[in-house]
Design a protein around this nucleic acid. Sequence first.
DNA 1: ACATTAACGGAGA
DNA 2: TCTCCGTTAATGT
Length: 231
Amino acid sequence: MSGKNLINSCENCENCWKGFKCLTNAEIELINENRYEAAFKPGEIILKQGAPASNALFLAKGLAKSYIEGIGGKNLIIAIFQPGMLILSPGAYVNSRHAYTVSALTPVNACFINFDIFRQLVRSNADFAEFLLEDFSRKSLISNQRMVSLSQKKMQGRIAEALLNLSDEVYRSDEFEIVLSRQELGEMTNMVKESVVRILKEMEDAGIISAVSSVIKIIDKAKLKEISEKG
DNA sequence: ACATTAACGGAGA
DNA sequence: TCTCCGTTAATGT
């Protein structure tokens, strides 16, 4: 960790969580005074599954993955977090433990805010609370949908969905340099890395994508969508 | 339709 | 050096 290039205030943070727009100046000040920003290198653990959840976390810079350390040492990647996103461990309101591990995929800056402060704002500001509810609900919907995909789609469909997701939501481009390894792509789509390699090659041979090491290019997006939807 | 295993070369620590 | 990654092919369920 290093202490370079930290944000000096919430007001001038371009990547602040949109929920903070609901706060009064005094409440923003409260957040700012209780904010602990830290920098992480790729691969470093930001939140550890099972450890006490005493903070709300905001990603100010970089990309991070959340994953559940499952059975037999197998990981399941839950989500990719981007700047501006709230990372509030679902366990925070339930058992005060992190339900999943969050680690940095790129250099990351993250702001920690004491959960008691966060909870205080939820109680005192209804708009803030409602925004949080919407944020949480949206993540829940996505999670449920992913459960269906992982359990009902075949490998091609799962990979297609993951690639479309990365293209549309994370990189916002049809050509991107993926920060995930083939192993991690497998942890996202519930398959072994060998299968990931094989499916990517099949799709490449079919002219749907190009995947040269970490640079992925979507050539036939319509076809990829079809594969994703058909399962 | 998948996982597993083995084998190999390369990158990086 | 050792470990992780990407890749291919053969084999197992």
